[in-house]
């Protein structure tokens, strides 16, 4: 219950409310601004003369007749064929998430139920692997992949992303399975199930909350990745994030930067929806390792 002491406006409280308000503006404004600006022409969004141009779209009205234009989106999705990259991303992300969750649940379950010392060492190694910068691993893949002729295709990238994802997935699912009482699967085994049957019929039906939370983070890792996908995929298999980078690299034709702006907004939109629906799971996932640890 809020007492007067809690609700009284002390200077400290004012400072802290102010800090929160400031932070919320800093966090949200760039997204809002870029979203708004993506419907303008370059002369408005990058207007040296007057920043209000980007708000009212003075040049946009002059060039296109309306105060909003879909030119950037049309350029990115139709002209630059961003939809191909979107399909590539969908394939890569879908398989990465599915495979890493399959591997991760099996491994995480085993680690949670094994009391042996080597289980700890595997978790410890996973923590060290988690810290490896991805680009250092990529520099190890490149030469062998070229030699074996598997560079540039999607399956290679998928399995690499799965592997990079494993340390985190293992830790998360391990701590999640620790919270499922041992008695459940053990009583199934007393009744004559094998370990795998106990896992299949007793654990799988109750594990979905943890798997969904972990899956969200696997999704984010695969979707957001730049280092691996930029180095390991050929041009026709390029996913959305390296594609945005190539938009910037290509010759700076007037307006082509707006393609990148439109692509950036298009890439951010699914993430926004994701947070909207799964906010609770994301928050619990972020803190899972910490609060229990």
């Amino acid at each position: 219950m809020a007492t007067t002491r809690d609700t009284r406006l002390t200077p400290l409280a004012i400072v802290s409310y102010g800090a929160v308000a400031l932070w919320l503006i800093i966090a949200a404004f760039p997204f809002f601004w870029t979203f708004w600006g993506s419907f303008k022409v370059q002369a408005d969004f990058f207007s040296k003369a007057d920043w209000t141009y980007a708000v009212y779209g003075v040049n946009t009205i002059r060039e296109t007749g309306g105060s909003f234009t879909g030119q950037g989106y049309e350029g990115a999705w139709v002209q630059e064929e961003f939809w191909k990259n979107a399909i590539n991303s969908t394939v890569v992300v879908f398989f990465t998430v599915t495979i890493s969750l399959t591997f991760g649940t099996l491994g995480g379950y085993a680690l949670a139920r094994s009391g042996f010392r080597y289980a700890f060492w595997i978790l410890f190694a996973a923590l060290v692997f988690r810290a490896m910068p991805h680009i250092t691993l990529v520099s190890g893949y490149l030469l062998p992949f070229f030699e074996w002729n598997i560079w540039g295709i999607k399956p290679t990238t998928i399995i690499v992303l799965v592997a990079i994802n494993q340390p985190f997935t293992l830790w998360m699912l391990h701590s999640f399975f620790l919270n499922i009482p041992k008695d459940m699967d053990e009583s199934a085994m007393v009744d004559g199930c094998t370990r795998f049957q106990a896992f299949r019929y007793v654990i799988i039906p109750v594990m979905w909350p943890g798997v969904i939370t972990t899956g969200l983070f696997s999704f984010l890792l695969a979707y957001n990745d730049f280092a691996v996908t930029a180095m390991l995929l050929s041009e026709e298999n390029e996913t959305i994030i390296p594609a945005i980078n190539s938009f910037l690299g290509s010759d700076q034709v007037e307006g082509s930067i707006m393609f990148a702006v439109a692509a950036v907004v298009s890439v951010t939109a699914p993430l926004l929806v994701l947070v909207l629906f799964f906010q609770r799971q994301i928050v619990s996932g972020l803190t899972a390792g910490a609060v229990k640890g």
Binding site: F103, L106, F129, M132, V162
Partner: peptide, 17 residues
């Protein structure tokens, strides 16, 4: 149980190092 995840990590994290 641990084989798939462990082999993925060994092949694509430990060996690349």
């Amino acid at each position: 149980f641990i084989l798939p995840t462990l082999s993925a990590m060994v092949l694509f994290i430990a060996l690349p190092i």
